[in-house]
Amino acid sequence: MSIDVHQLDAGAWISVNDSREVSVSNLWRLARQEFCGCEMADFLAEGFVEVGVDTRAIEARIAGQCIACGASGVTDWLAVGRVLDGEFRPVVPESVHIPCRRSRLARPASLE
């Protein structure tokens, strides 16, 4: 089944199968991360820089800032949700997430 993923409106949100699903302005808790020196980054999502699909997981690299320490930049890949039975199930941003470097090439947007 095809999953169509875009970041749109200057990175304001992620569209999954033409439905706006993940928006900027949420706070994400990031653990085991290299984004900043905090043990647990409290990361404000300001823009989606890249999006991709890994099997059914929708992933993104997000530009933003850790509001605990002030470091700003772009995260490694983060799972923002999954597509199950054709339906997008978002993760809860304020639960703990672990950004990953990709070990293989991401499949960029608009994939079969």
Partner: peptide, 22 residues
């Protein structure tokens, strides 16, 4: 069409129309 929303909303901007937020 539901599966053409993103494309059309991007194009409508040329005619000054911006789909409001979520």
């Amino acid at each position: 069409p539901d599966d053409e929303h993103d494309a059309w909303f991007e194009r409508f901007k040329w005619w000054g129309l911006y789909h409001q937020r979520n």
